[in-house]
Design a protein around this nucleic acid. Structure first.
Length: 195
DNA sequence: TCCCCGATTAACT
DNA sequence: GTTAATCGGGGAG
């Protein structure tokens, strides 16, 4: 029986939480049931990080990033796609982990509908696609994944440290030197292969 | 107020 | 490989 990760899991630094999320299950409740996928790719965005949305301080868009850990930070990317983060660290710090890719597990029919009939391999391959497949949009911004009923993270075996690969974050220009993208090495569900 | 840019994706050539 | 779609933030004017 899967159980949810506790608040303390998220209250650590983003670069510690990120690799620990690999192998865990993200679950989302939609009208037809519960969708599930196994996380294989995430990125950490810490405090004093020029690549982070929180870098310039609190705004209306990123407000939930400065809230308590264990909540969602959802934003609109390029005015088109939704991207989903888990808020980490102490409240007020403004750090989070971006969920970038996952292996679809439950509710694939529903995911295909939401993804416009995309191939299974492309259902959750990329942050915008993952959010769309799971039905996560701005209405979920700030949702509590520890006690809420919309989106949550289920405990699981995780993956051994030796199976985690670190790379620079995708699409980041400022702060490009930090190896804060964490993936399950060799997974065929990644948005891009790890070098 | 205007202009540029970005943690992206799908549909092109 | 290129580009349109389209929105919020931030700096220039």
């Amino acid at each position: 029986v899967s159980r949810r990760l506790p608040r303390e899991f998220y209250s650590r630094a983003a670069e510690q939480v990120a690799p620990d999320l690999l192998g865990r299950i993200i679950a989302a409740r939609v009208p037809t049931g519960v969708l599930r996928a196994r996380l294989v790719e995430v990125e950490a965005y810490g405090p004093a990080d020029p690549a982070s949305h929180s870098f310039g301080g609190k705004t209306r868009r990123n407000a939930s990033m400065f809230g308590p850990p264990g909540h969602l930070y959802v934003y609109l990317s390029y005015g088109v796609h939704h991207c989903m983060n888990l808020v980490t660290g102490p409240e007020g710090e403004g750090s989070a982990v971006l969920l970038r890719a996952a292996e679809p597990l439950d509710g694939l029919d529903e995911m295909r509908l939401r993804r416009g009939g995309a191939a299974d391999r492309d259902l959750c391959r990329g942050p915008g696609r993952l959010a769309q497949a799971l039905g996560v949009d701005l209405s979920r911004d700030g949702a509590d994944v520890v006690s809420g009923e919309e989106v949550w993270i289920e405990d699981g075996p995780g993956i051994p440290p030796g199976a985690v690969a670190r790379t620079p974050r995708v699409g980041v220009t400022r702060g490009a030197g930090d190896l804060w993208r964490f993936v399950e090495a060799g997974s065929s569900w990644l948005s891009r292969p790890a070098p």
